[in-house]
Design a protein around this nucleic acid. Structure first.
Lengths: 304, 304
DNA sequence: TTGTATGCGTTATCAT
DNA sequence: ATGATAACGCATACAA
């Protein structure tokens, strides 16, 4: 059309403060420019850390983010994801046995797994090399001279929890250190898990001199419990986390941990998802990012 | 229709794994069952605290939550809210001069203001009595014997920042204590604000013995800076926050603060919004919740 | 360049 | 109780 009419139209649109209806458009184009992000409660500080860069990446490419919470208790209804209101889904809470990925796949809804993976399905995935990260922690603890090591792991039914546990055990057993059963705890990746477990470990007649935590949020709970018991770190106790969420670097904690590049992970996930939306039949890819140890203030030699 | 046919239909629907199209439905019904929640970055721990209960409340009533980020830098485009994809909007970042509420009002898009209010418009609002909360802090500090008091306030162009500042000053001046200009800082409600400002205050030749913070996130930044300087709380310094986010109660901080009931605030906001969606012409209401002091471990008498 | 028709998947209305 | 039809607001393809 002519430039003149175009301007006239745009002018009228502005005058009427016209905004195209999203429903009409997406009904016609079969695209909503909306992505669902499935996560646990936002009050668990891990998730904002992972979700925020995704939200930004999506926004940059013209997509909006719909938050969907997956509580362990009442499972997520597939209908919420499959009513056509989403162009794709990012899964951050998948457990090894979860059926959601299969349901999405069978409905041809594009999705990616982030930070968690499952082996029962071919899917686009982006994860850290959790095993390697935990092995690095094991080596650090050994280097420091620790032999009485405890651990507060995440859930075994998540790849993240499982791989970090495998890595720690592998690293320790290389030099003949093993985790005593009574110095090992397991639970959801939450502050409460770390807090409760650390109290239990400290109640032990001979408590651990170093504790590996399945992630930073658990480590912060453990830290709080230790402080609550009057311990000083790292003098009395070594705590090492995993993730390197922003809080880990706060001087109030100064948590020694394993850095995961969430921005890179989010960027990769968004990229993979949008690529799949464009070309649904592409071969699946799996990206693995390498974590690295970040030494701060919660590790030291055993009290001796 | 008959029970038999109904069952037959439902059976077929299940067999085809049919899910009604959200776009088609909302085009027809003019309702999307979707609410936009405007907030700042989720990595600021305050927002998850406020948003999570809203999200839950909305979910419980059959609404979904679309996250929208309002960055100070690039202002939010009204089109994102006005394309018919939202039944209503919850605003948590409104500043005193922001135009968003007016634009929403002129387009007849239901909205509520939460935690922030603006005086230039009649709108549904739910806020804390921030002035009263800050006055309680002032009284606490006075009771402890503090006279050399500093403050790290939030932005003056937010009702929250302004009212808390007004309250603190009013409370202090009742007994003749005033805030010296060189012990006062101001900035966004962020960790960085608190961290930087506290370092500056501590660089002062005669640093404050007590510091009021505009909110908990600022207080946590201040806490970190103090710890980073080797101070012990409350022996060397008193810090008081505002909000009582979950982290404030972590023993690693044990932050003395002012409790705001976010669940109640979220519940009220959701209730008001859905009521307005049903009856757009209802008179506007303004709910004010009362905060109360929570004494923990970061307050004490001045070092003397 | 401009106008007109069709389809997207619902809900609602109106006959049958 | 059932079946047909219009309308929602947009995009698209086609005709004028």
């Amino acid at each position: 059309m002519s430039e003149a009419t175009r301007n006239r139209i745009m002018e009228a649109a502005r005058a009427l403060s016209y905004v195209p209806s999203e429903a009409g458009r997406s009904l016609s184009t079969k695209a909503t420019k909306r992505i669902g992000v499935v996560s646990a409660e936002l009050t668990n500080p891990f998730f904002p850390q992972l979700i925020e860069p995704m939200r930004e990446g999506l926004e940059k490419r013209g997509y909006r983010t719909l938050l969907i919470t997956d509580r362990a208790e009442n499972p997520l209804e597939i209908g919420l994801l499959a009513d056509g209101s989403l162009d794709g889904v990012i899964l951050t809470t998948a457990t090894l046995g979860s059926s959601l990925p299969h349901e999405l796949a069978s409905r041809r809804i594009p999705f990616v797994l982030v930070n968690r993976e499952i082996d029962s399905i071919a899917a686009d995935t982006c994860v850290m090399d959790n095993r390697s990260g935990a092995e690095q922690v094991a080596q650090l603890l050994i280097r420091l001279g620790h032999r009485r090591v405890g651990a507060i792991f995440g859930p075994q039914e998540t790849s993240t929890g499982r791989d970090r546990e495998v890595g720690l055990r592998a690293g320790l057993s290389e030099v003949g250190v093993s985790l005593p059963r009574n110095l090992t705890r397991r639970g959801p990746f939450s502050y409460e898990t770390g807090h409760r477990a650390m109290r239990e470990l400290l109640d032990n007649p001979t408590p651990p001199a170093a504790v590996f935590c399945g992630n930073d949020v658990i480590a912060l709970g453990a830290h709080s419990a230790a402080i609550g018991r009057g311990l000083r770190l790292p003098r009395d106790l070594t705590i090492v986390g995993f993730d390197d969420i922003a809080m880990a670097s706060w001087e109030s904690f100064g948590l020694t941990t394993v850095r995961c590049d969430f921005t890179a992970m989010a960027e990769a996930a968004v990229g993979m998802l949008l690529k799949r939306i464009k070309q649904p039949s592409l071969p699946h890819q799996r990206q693995v990012l390498s974590p690295r140890l970040v030494l701060r203030g919660t590790h030291g030699p055993p009290a001796s």
